[in-house]
Simulated assay, not measured.
Amino acid sequence: MPTPETATPAPAGVIHDIGYQRYQGVRLGRGYVVGSLYAHSLRTAFGLGRSAKAKIFPWLIVGIVAVVAAVLAAIRAQLGQMPLSYAQFPQTLILLILLFCAVVAPELVSRDLHSGVLPLYFARPLRRGDYALAKWGALATAAFLMLAGPLTLMFAAIAFTLDDLGAVWREFGDFAPGLAYLAIHAVVFSAVALLVASLVKRRAVAAGAIVGVFLLTTPVVGVLSVLPSRTANQLAGLASPATLVGGVGDWLFESSGDLGIGDFGPLYGLVTLALVVTCVALLLARYRKVAAQ
């Protein structure tokens, strides 16, 4: 009879080969993950790949903008001039840009916060800053395309009614500042909207908070604009993101001149840049904090 010292110990466990194989393909890495997140977020902004209900609002906004662009193109074809220039187009439809960002930004970030899926994102080779910048880039791109598409179609429709290439080139010279002004709107509004949305888990509350940030600053502009000081009147637009961007447009593109910013155009530009940088920095800090929780 074997003694305890000479007995063969029972195996602690058995490894079974059930057919799994190691991945031998190319590991695409962090850049591919960021690009995929950006593309997925851009599709989400327009409801692509989602239910029909998710497509209603963004495409309704696009449809409204397209109708406005078509009407302006028809007026230009009939009368030879438009009531709005290309550069005035985004400022006239600024409320639609605000509503678009207010609804889409919570879809991009508040949903992830509410459902608690961020640890799954960060388990991959995706940095916290990558997530925030991809979402911001997607929202800014969506807001830009929402108006740039109809504006481009309006330019194309007008270009086909012109007589020679010189006229088309002059028309393009008016069209290009409109696209640049659109980009400024998209960058500023998306930065503010995404920062606010990143602080609120409920999408409806986040949308209301975004609208509130823009609208609650408007009375400040009104008060400053009626003060007896001319300098205060010219600086009043700095108090609200909407009028701030409008001041940049008046400075760079002479879109309307309604704000009366005087010689403070460069200041409007610097404050706009500072606003974007501050919002993005706070957004990155926000996601560093979320990751640590």
Rank of each mutant, 00 (worst) to 15 (best):
M1T: 10
M1W: 15
M1L: 15
T3D: 15
T3Y: 15
E5V: 14
T6C: 07
A7C: 02
A7H: 11
P9D: 13
Q21E: 14
Q21G: 11
R22P: 11
Y23T: 10
R27E: 14
R27H: 13
L28I: 05
L28F: 14
G29V: 07
G29H: 03
G31A: 06
S36E: 14
S36Q: 15
L37A: 07
H40M: 11
H40C: 04
R43C: 12
T44D: 12
A45G: 08
L48V: 15
K53P: 08
A54Q: 09
K55H: 09
K55E: 12
F57V: 13
I64T: 14
I64Q: 12
V67G: 04
V67F: 15
V67K: 04
L72W: 04
I75Q: 07
I75E: 14
Q78D: 08
L79G: 12
Y86N: 05
F89Y: 15
L95K: 08
L95G: 11
L95Q: 10
L98M: 15
L99M: 14
A105K: 04
A105C: 07
E107P: 00
V109C: 08
V109D: 01
V109F: 01
R111T: 14
D112P: 04
D112L: 07
L113I: 12
L113M: 12
L113W: 01
H114L: 08
H114D: 10
S115H: 12
Y121Q: 11
F122G: 01
A123C: 15
R124D: 00
R124A: 09
P125K: 09
R127E: 08
K135L: 08
G137R: 01
A138D: 09
L139V: 14
F144D: 11
L145P: 03
L151Q: 10
L151M: 14
F155R: 09
A157P: 02
L162Q: 13
L162T: 06
D163T: 11
D164I: 03
L165G: 13
E171Y: 05
A180C: 12
Y181N: 07
V188C: 02
V188I: 04
A191F: 01
A193D: 10
A193F: 05
A193I: 05
L194Y: 02
L195A: 01
V196H: 00
V196I: 13
A197Y: 00
A197E: 07
A197R: 09
R202M: 00
R202D: 15
R203P: 09
A209D: 10
I210V: 15
L216Q: 10
T218C: 04
T218I: 14
P219S: 09
V220L: 15
L227K: 00
T231K: 12
N233F: 07
N233E: 09
N233A: 11
L235N: 06
L235T: 06
A236M: 13
A239F: 06
S240I: 00
P241F: 02
G247C: 02
V248W: 00
G249C: 01
G249K: 02
L252Y: 01
F253A: 06
G257F: 03
D258Y: 04
L259Y: 12
L259T: 03
I261S: 03
F264N: 09
G265I: 09
L267H: 04
L270M: 10
V276C: 03
V280A: 05
L282D: 00
L284C: 10
A292L: 08
Q293D: 13
